[in-house]
Design a binder for these strands. Structure first.
Lengths: 220, 220
DNA sequence: TTTGACACGTACTGGTTAGTACATTATCAG
DNA sequence: CTGATAATGTACTAACCAGTACGTGTCAAA
C-alpha cells in the first residue's frame, strides 16, 4: 500500500523547521521589508504553519531579527577566509576590495536587509547582542594592511581604517542597493556583465589612488 | 462675540491643502516607509482629513508617488545652480563633489525615500512620467568637466561620466543611508561634525586621485 | 510501556487600516 | 443672486493581519 506515503506520519525535526522558516522569511522580508512582509505569506510558503513561527520566534519582529542575525553571521564567516598577510599591501587591498565587491554583488538579499534595517534606524540590530558583538574583523585587517603600506613608504599616513572600509563598502553596496532607482534615472542596467568588471576596476583604482602617497592632495 | 473665531467658516484652499498633505506624508513615508506609513497617521497630523488625501491623491500609493516626485523635483532645481563652466577642471570637480556631499547630508528624507523606493524595485518611479524624464543634468555637467580635464591633459581618458557620478553619489549617499547600521557596528556616530569634514575631504581626494592621469593604474 | 516535555496543526479573534458613502459648504461665473 | 462645481467633513465598512486558544501527535527517558 501507499499509505505510508499518503499520510506519512508527522516527523518532529525542530532544527529543520526553524531553518525552513528562516529561509522563507529571509526571502519575504528581503523582498517586501519588515512592514511589508506578511507572516501569513511566510507561513504558506513554509512546510509548517504560522503557529510554529510564533512558537520559535515569538513575534514578527523576533523572526525578522533572527533573519537579520543569520545574514550577518554569514558574512562574518566569509570575511575570515582571505589570507592577506602574505601579500604586498597593494595586492592585499585589491584582493580585499574585490572580495567586498563580489560579496555585495552576490548577496543582494543581505544588501536589502541592511537597507531595510537602516530604514528602521537599526533599532532591531541594537537590541541584538549577537550583532552588537560582531566587531567585524575586516577593520583589523585593513588597519594591518595600511600599516604595512605606510612602513613601506607607499601609503599616505592619514587614512583611517574604518573610513577606508566605508569608502569601499559605500560603492559596492550602493551599486546593489540603489540599482533600481539609479538604473531607471540613467537608463543603465547596473547588473549588466560589462559594468561588473568596469566598476570593480573603478573602485579598486580609486581606492588605491587615494591611499597611495602623493605630493598633491590639496585643493578646493 | 467670539463666534467668528470659534466656528470660523471653512476656507477652501486646495493648493495649501495639497501642500499640507504632501509635507506630512513626506515625513511619514520617510520615517516608516511605504508599507509602514499609515494614511490615518498622515490624516491626523494634517489640518484636513483623510477624505482629502483620497480626493487629491486617489490612493496611498498615489500619495507616495506624489511625495517621491516632489522630492526629485527639489533636487533637480538645486543641481542647476552650480556655475562650473568657469572653473578649472579640478576645482569644478571638487565643487561638484562638495555639493553632492552636502546635499545628501542636508536631505536625509530624500535619501530615505530613495532607499525605500529601491526596496520597492523602483516600481513607482518607473510609472512616473515626470521622474522618467528627469535625465539629470549633473551627468552632462560631469561629462563637460571631464572633457576639459582631458583636453588639458590632466585627466585620464577612460572615465565615464555616469560611472563617476555613481562613485561620488555612492559614498555621499551611503554615509547617510547606512549611518545607523554602520554606526552601530563600528561604534561611530556618522553624524559627528569632525567626520563631516574628514569624509568630505576623503571622497574629494579619492575621486580626484582617480581621475588624474597616472602612469600606474595596473595591478591585481 | 508509560509519562511528560517538546513539537506541531487547525481554527479562530480582535484590532487595525485602506478606502468609501453620504451629506455639506465654499466659490465663482453669469 | 443663483446655480453649478469644486472642496470638505463625518461616519462608516470590509478586508487584512498579527497573534492566540485549544487540542493532538512525537519521542526519549525511566
Amino acid at each position: 500500500m501507499a499509505t505510508s506515503v499518503e499520510r506519512e506520519g508527522r516527523k518532529n525535526d525542530p532544527e529543520k523547521t526553524k531553518e525552513d522558516i528562516l529561509r522563507v522569511a529571509t526571502e519575504e522580508f528581503s523582498a517586501y521589508g519588515l512592514s511589508g512582509g506578511r507572516v501569513d505569506a511566510i507561513a504558506e510558503k513554509t512546510k509548517t504553519s504560522k503557529r510554529m513561527i510564533y512558537y520559535y520566534f515569538g513575534s514578527k519582529e523576533g523572526l525578522y531579527l533572527a533573519v537579520l542575525e543569520k545574514a550577518y553571521r554569514k558574512i562574518r564567516s566569509l570575511e575570515a577566509d582571505l589570507q592577506l598577510a602574505d601579500m604586498p599591501p597593494v595586492e592585499a587591498l585589491r584582493t580585499l576590495i574585490a572580495s567586498t565587491f563580489d560579496h555585495d554583488e552576490n548577496n543582494p538579499d543581505f544588501v536589502r536587509l541592511v537597507s531595510i534595517e537602516n530604514i528602521h534606524y537599526a533599532s532591531h540590530m541594537k537590541q541584538s547582542s549577537e550583532i552588537g558583538e560582531l566587531n567585524l574583523s575586516i577593520v583589523k585587517t585593513i588597519a594591518e594592511v595600511l600599516e604595512r603600506g605606510r612602513s613601506e613608504g607607499i601609503f599616505r599616513r592619514d587614512v583611517d581604517a574604518v573610513d577606508l572600509h566605508m569608502l569601499i563598502s559605500a560603492f559596492c553596496f550602493f551599486r546593489v542597493s540603489n540599482r533600481y532607482t539609479f538604473g531607471t534615472i540613467f537608463h543603465r542596467d547596473l547588473s549588466a556583465p560589462e559594468l561588473y568588471s568596469r566598476h570593480k576596476h573603478m573602485i579598486s583604482d580609486a581606492v588605491l589612488a587615494y591611499v597611495r602617497c602623493s605630493s598633491d592632495t590639496s585643493g578646493g
